[in-house]
Design a protein around this nucleic acid. Structure first.
Length: 290
DNA sequence: CCCATTTGACCAAG
DNA sequence: CTTGGTCAAATGGG
């Protein structure tokens, strides 16, 4: 799995780090177990085992969240700096001195133009179809992955440029079960633009939103105070803190038997690395101030 | 004409 | 070096 567990805030005590590490490991194992159970379940139709694992997973998730919150929550920094780098490189070298490279125009030199995101908040779902989570996604790439039979597709939020939403996801068909797709979400939606799909809020849908929001509650980290060149996040952050405590009431082990045949259950593995501070890139930008 | 996808090159990180 | 992630020109569909 792609559950990055590095880069915890250094303020976490060693003990806490160890606890979290163990929890994350257990969470990963439970997630995999649930995936296994899900497959056998399709044949014999018993749900209790999977529900049990769902509860285990929820326990892991909530415990991790509590641990993370009690540490970083005390600081309560409101400024989630959004440092999306869609301010494209201002083309500092405007040397249009002919001699374009064969492949691309010379003016489109992308060196230093984009910055790979460090470990952001990610969570993974495994679902029978590419689910509609209410956000508009736009594909921006596809890549063959080593030791994977199927390519991986990369999506970003459609609101990346008009609202600076940095949420991305990638989707990959699972090789042992082509009906299933593993979707990894990276980052939060900061856009307010939810595609209005007046469908019934399925548990799957709701839980996903929940994870997205609750993780942003954890995401608040002690402010590495660099000047955010973009405006900070709006009211979103504040509201979510009040959203978080309700998690325990959420019915995760949802609707598994509710519908005919086509099970809509979705596995979630929330890997909250609580390392949003790493999202704030400042290397290179300081060159302007030295 | 506009917008989304495709696709190969480019880039960062290990 | 290899590999996964991103960019953007080309392409295609409305």
């Amino acid at each position: 799995m792609i559950l990055g567990t590095s880069n915890w805030p250094e303020k976490l005590s060693v003990t806490r780090q160890k606890v979290i590490k163990e929890l994350v490991e257990g969470q990963e194992c439970a997630t995999q177990l649930k995936t296994l159970l899900h497959k056998t379940m399709e044949h014999n139709g018993s749900f209790s085992a999977e529900e049990l694992v769902s509860k285990i997973l929820r326990s892991f998730t909530e415990t991790l969240s509590v641990l993370s919150c009690t540490e970083s929550g005390e600081v309560n920094s409101q400024n989630l700096a959004v440092s999306h780098a869609d301010s494209h490189c201002d083309d500092p070298r405007s040397d249009d001195s002919g001699e374009s490279s064969r492949k691309r125009p010379a003016s489109k030199d992308r060196r230093g133009c984009y910055r790979r995101r460090k470990t952001a908040h990610t969570w993974t779902t495994v679902s029978p179809k590419v689910e509609n989570d209410g956000h508009a996604w736009r594909k921006y790439g596809q890549k063959e992955i080593l030791n994977a039979k199927h390519p991986r597709s990369y999506f970003r939020c459609t609101r990346k440029y008009d609202q600076g939403c940095r949420a991305t996801k990638h989707v990959q068909k699972m090789e042992n079960d082509p009906q299933m797709f593993q979707t990894t979400y990276i980052g939060l939606h900061t856009c307010k633009d939810i595609v209005k799909t007046p469908q019934i809020v399925t548990e799957t849908h709701g839980w996903e939103c929940f994870l997205a929001k609750s993780e942003s509650a954890i995401a608040v980290t002690p402010s590495v105070k660099l000047e955010a060149k973009e405006e900070a996040l709006s009211d979103l952050t504040g509201n979510l803190h009040s959203f978080w405590p309700d998690l325990k009431d959420f019915p995760l082990s949802g609707p598994i038997g509710s519908d005919n045949g086509d099970v809509v259950s979705t596995m979630y593995s929330c890997t909250d690395t609580a390392s949003l501070s790493l999202d704030i890139e400042f290397d290179g930008d300081f060159s302007d101030f030295i």
